[in-house]
Amino acid sequence: MQQTNDQIIQIRWHGRGGQGAITAAKVVAEAAFRSGYGGAVMAPTFGTERRGAPVTTSLKISRSKIYDLSPITTPDIVVVLDHMILHEVDVTSGLKPGGWIIMNSPRMVKDYSFPGYRTAVANATRLGVEAGLRKGVVNTGIIGALGRASGLIGIDILAETIAEEFSGRNPDANALAARLVYDATLMDDSTTGGPTDA
């Protein structure tokens, strides 16, 4: 009889309606599954969302099947597709001590201070354009930052899964965006928080 208490890694995604957080989480679910995580559950939170409003989606990954489909309340990682959401939503809500905040932001990692948490920052908006994407497409780029900071899934399998998901919709540029962001992600894993004014 299979036990259900295997460790589950919980990732909460914060984006804006229309920004593609759900697609990004789905791609990571797929890549995790291909990397040997037998349990990968992606559950969007449905409300009365409209374009531009803050939205979240939950991704749980585990080595074995996941039975609990309830929404994530204590994430290990939060991924933020738009740094301006920090002004509207407490993205650290429930985040486990030492958990990662992985953010698309034009600012530097040292500009942020989240005591007790680890921070990773990359400018996925700019790097997306460099990769050949329309300005504002950030959901594939941020996957690179998640791969880099968490070390959960290799960048090759992430890029490959992105290219398949976006087949017919700029697959190479989307995959390249993730690779560029992966390389450019800056991390502060001290959990003491940076020196600053954020």
């Binding site: 599954f33 037998g38 349990g39 992606m42 559950a43 969007p44 449905f46």
Partner: peptide, 10 residues
């Protein structure tokens, strides 16, 4: 609804 209909799993 949602728990299964809109959730992705293997």
């Amino acid at each position: 609804g949602y728990y299964l209909s809109h959730t992705y799993m293997p």
